[in-house]
Each structure stands twice: as structure tokens, then as C-alpha cells.
Design a protein around this nucleic acid. Sequence first.
DNA 1: GCGTATTTTGTCATTTTTTGGCATATATGA
DNA 2: TCATATATGCCAAAAAATGACAAAATACGC
Lengths: 145, 145
Amino acid sequence: MFRGQFIHKISGTGRISVPSKFRDNLKKKYKTNHLILSTFENSIICYPLPEWNKLEDKIAKLPQFKKETVEFERYLIGNAHESEIDSEGRIMVPGILRKKFNINNSAIFVGMLSRFEIWSEKDWKKDLANSFKKFQKSREVIDEI
Amino acid sequence: MFRGQFIHKISGTGRISVPSKFRDNLKKKYKTNHLILSTFENSIICYPLPEWNKLEDKIAKLPQFKKETVEFERYLIGNAHESEIDSEGRIMVPGILRKKFNINNSAIFVGMLSRFEIWSEKDWKKDLANSFKKFQKSREVIDEI
DNA sequence: GCGTATTTTGTCATTTTTTGGCATATATGA
DNA sequence: TCATATATGCCAAAAAATGACAAAATACGC
């Protein structure tokens, strides 16, 4: 499970080291060092490749020209980049994603159990300000827990 | 699988380099460097030749004089151009397609699993502005995922 | 606290990918 | 046929990604 927050520097070429605890989880639980980075709301969302593949397999079975399928694919698959963790524990975050989320000097990794997110510091702080309010609202709606 | 977004320059003669990750996928998975370019919505749609053939086979099985079949065929098959990836990793995008989609200086490749799309920057941004909203809608329809 | 091990960061060299340019070839249409 | 537009082949420059190594920072055990 991915848990916790970590601030890491990102190099000019877009390399950033994945928190070692996340790497341990990837190795132990998923036996992979491949990630898929995609976009969701205001951050880069990262899935272990095996998890992501399950999602793709489902999408591949949908009728390929149907409007909903196409829109879903454009957003989710269209933003997805595969990235391998290198010998130093780093990944390359493609420029197109860095630009999209204003990730320049450092970024925040946020664990989300089966996935994790990468935020720019600025956006993270902004979101944080709202998140407690949002949490208050959503806990009234989520009955299952 | 074709995934991700890549912005590439297009030459005056209509040559544009196919993202290397797409080329790798073409080689490994499809063992081809032939593509079929056609039109779909506001972009050029690109299929590896083997995938295209599958599509044609499916179309061939449809009732051949049905209105929808004819219309579907005319649109998809009628606009299809074959293109081979050259030694520099580029393809030629026929002028007729470039004009149709206002592709001038640069274009965006968007991965869609078994195919990919080529957009003009302008149209892509326009579409993108709606894409998260569309995604929100479509994911309600695609419950299984 | 101190020393050790691990993790993160910086830098440089190498390789790969993308782009630009130019010359030649092929087709198109008057 | 010739002029024009379109397409192809080839080479080299520019830009981006990757690999390797080492320094700096941080965490950990005692």
C-alpha cells in the first residue's frame, strides 16, 4: 500500500526519485518497476503497471467507436505514459505532464493505497486548503464505511 | 499498446516523426511499419496495418447494403491512406488530410491502445477543454470499470 | 550523540530521438 | 512536353533521454 507524503527534487530533464517506501511496495506487492503516469484532476496519477493493465484490458473490450469509449480513452489512455524506475530509483516525468501541472523544481508524492499522486507544491497547498472542507461533505455521502 | 501524448513538428512536405514509443510498439506487437491513416471526428486516426485489416474484416461481415454500413464504410474506408514509416521514423501525412484538420507546424499524437490519433494543436486544446467534463460523463456510462 | 547504511541529488558522457535541409524522383495537369 | 506540385532518400545538426558515477542529505541502530 502506498501511504504518506514525500517532497522530492525534480531535475531539469524531468527525473525524480520515487520514495523508497513506494519502491519497496512496488517490488514486494507488484513485482515490477514499471509505472504508468496519467492525469486525474490536478495531479499526475501513478499506477503500478499490473494494475493499469487490468484497466486497459477492460477498455479494450468495449465497442471501439462508441462515443463514451472514445472519450474515456482520450482522457485516460491519451494521458498515460509508461515509465521505468532506473537503477537510482528515479523515473522520468514527461515534459508534457510537467508543463500541464506546473511541476518545476520539486514535487510532492502522495500515497493513495493502490496508486499514488504527484503534485506541484503550489497546487498541493491550494488543494489542501479545500480538502478538509471537501472531506466534511463527502463523509456524509459515503455510507459504506 | 499506444499510450500518451507527444507533440511533434511537421515539415512543409508533410513529414512527421512517429513517437519512438509508438514505433517500438508497432515493431514488437505488430511487426510492421505500415500504417493506415483515416479520419475520425476531428483528427487523423492511425491504425497498424494488421489492426486495420481486422477492422475491414468486421466491416465486410456487416449487411452490405444497409444504410449505416455504407455510411460507415464511406467515412472510414473512403478516407484511408496507407503510409510507411521511413528510415528516420517519419511518415508522410497526405496534404488532403493536413488541410482537412488544419495541421501546419506541429501536431499532437494521442495514444488510444490499438490505434492512435493525430490532432492539430488548436483542435486538441479545444477538445481538451471539454475532455475532463466528457470523461466525467463517460465514466458514469462505463460502469464496469 | 556518533558512525554506518540507505536514500536522494547533481553532473557528465553517451546514446537515441527528433528536426532541418537539400537533392532527386515521381506524379499531375495545362 | 514542360512546369508545377508532391513525394522520397539521405545526411547531419539539435534536442532529449538514458546510464554511470559520486557527492550530499537523511534515516537508523547502537
